Computed example of a mutant assay.
Amino acid sequence: MSMNIGLDMMGGDLAPLEAVKGVQLYLKEVTNPATLWLVGDESKIRPLLQEYAIPEGAVRVVHSSQVIGMHEHPTKALKEKQQSSIAIGFHLLATGKMDAFISAGNTGAMLVGALYSLKPIDGIQRPTISTVIPKENGKTGVLLDVGLNSDCKAENLNQFATLGSLYAQHILGIGEPRVGLLNIGEEEGKGNILAQAAYPLLKENSHIHFIGNIEGRDLLLDKADVTVCEGFTGNVILKLAESLFDITRQHKTESEYFDRFDAEYYGGTPLLGVTKPVIIGHGISRSKSFLNMVKLAQKMLETDLLGKMKESFLS
C-alpha cells in the first residue's frame, strides 16, 4: 500500500530545521516508509534536505510562499493566505494527492482547515481531539475531548467514547478498552447536567465497554483506558499534566514515569471524526515529535482506523 503523508515544514517555533531532522529520523527508522510530501518554502527546505542527506526519491517538495503565524486569526488567515503551507496541505489532502496531513503550526488554522476541507465522518456531530494519558503502571490511556469542544451535549460525549475506543483498540493495541465518564463521584446520577445525561447513553452504547464514572484521582491509575469529558475540563487536565513534566525538569526529579508526560514522547494529537488523518503537533515540536507524528499517521492509515470509525457510525 503506497502512502503519501504531508508535512507542514513551516509549522512550529523550530521549523523547518526540526521538521527536516524528524524526516531524517523517520527515513532511518522505518523499513517501509511512506512518501513524504514536504510543504513549505523551497528556498529554506532544499538546503536543509541536502545538509541532512535526505534522498530525493523519498520526499516531494511542494513550494508554499506564505506561512500562517502562530497567533493569526485562523479563519481570516486561511482565507487571505491561500499560498500558505497549511492551506496548500489541506488542498492536497482534500483532492486525494495526500492521504494524511501533519502540522505543528497554528492549531486553530489546522482545525478550521480540516473542518472546511474535509467532511466529518457521516453521523458524527463534532470531531474531537484527544491526548494520551500515561498510567502509573506503564500502560497508556486516552482522554477526550481536550479542547476542541468546550461545551458539549451528552450525545457528543457518547460519540467521543466510540471514537476514543476505536483509537485505543487500533492505535494503542488495547483489546477491549474500558470507557469511563469523568465525574465528581463514582455513583450513577452524580455530576452536572451533562454528566447525568451522558451516563445512560454510554451505558446503552453497544460499540463500547462502559465501566461507569471515574474521578480525577483515577485518571493516572489503571481504572479506564478511555476517559470522556467535555473539552473545557479535558484541556485543564492536559495543561496540568504538561506542567507536571515541566516541574519535574525544573526540580531535576529523575522519574521514568514523569518523563512520559513530555509532549515530544507522543508527537501530536489526531483530529478524530474527520474522513482523513489530520495530526496537530505542539508549537515547540522537535525532531522526535515530527518522527512520532509521521509514524502515527502511517499507523492510522495501515490499520484503516478511519474506515473502522465510518463503519461504527453507519449503524
Rank of each mutant, 00 (worst) to 15 (best):
F232W: 11
S165G: 05
E254A: 13
N137A: 07
L118I: 00
K190Y: 05
F232A: 10
E204P: 01
K252H: 10
C152E: 03
T227G: 08
I193Y: 13
Q196K: 15
E215P: 05
G123A: 05
K135H: 06
Y167S: 00
I174E: 06
N213G: 05
F258A: 08
I247V: 15
E242W: 05
L221A: 12
K252V: 03
I133C: 03
V179M: 02
D246H: 13
G173T: 05
E188N: 05
I208P: 00
P127C: 04
F245G: 07
N183T: 04
I124S: 12
D218E: 11
V142L: 09
G234W: 03
N158Y: 01
E188S: 11
T227K: 10
L118W: 01
K252E: 03
G216I: 03
I211T: 01
H170C: 02
R126Q: 07
L181M: 07
P120F: 00
N183Y: 06
K190H: 10
Q159K: 01
A195Y: 04
V236A: 14
N235P: 10
S206G: 09
G231F: 01
D259H: 13
V226G: 08
Y116R: 15
T140H: 08
N149F: 03
K252D: 08
E186Y: 15
P134Y: 08
L221M: 12
G185S: 14
L181Q: 09
E204H: 13
V226F: 03
I247Q: 15
E187K: 08
L244N: 00
Y116N: 13
R217A: 12
Q125Y: 13
E186W: 11
L143V: 03
K119N: 14
Y257Q: 12
P200M: 02
T128P: 06
Q159H: 10
T233K: 11
V142K: 10
E256R: 13
F210N: 07
F232D: 12
L244M: 12
I193A: 14
E155L: 03
G191K: 06
S206A: 15
L163G: 00
N156A: 09
E136S: 13
L240S: 15
L221I: 04
G175S: 14
R178F: 03
A241N: 14
I174T: 10
G189N: 02
V179P: 06
C229E: 08
F261G: 06
T253R: 15
F232H: 13
E256P: 11
N137E: 01
L221R: 15
Q196L: 04
I211H: 01
A224L: 02
A224G: 07
D222F: 03
L194W: 06
E256Q: 13
I208T: 06
D145W: 04
D246K: 14
D259T: 10
F232I: 11
L163N: 09
E204Y: 04
K223A: 09
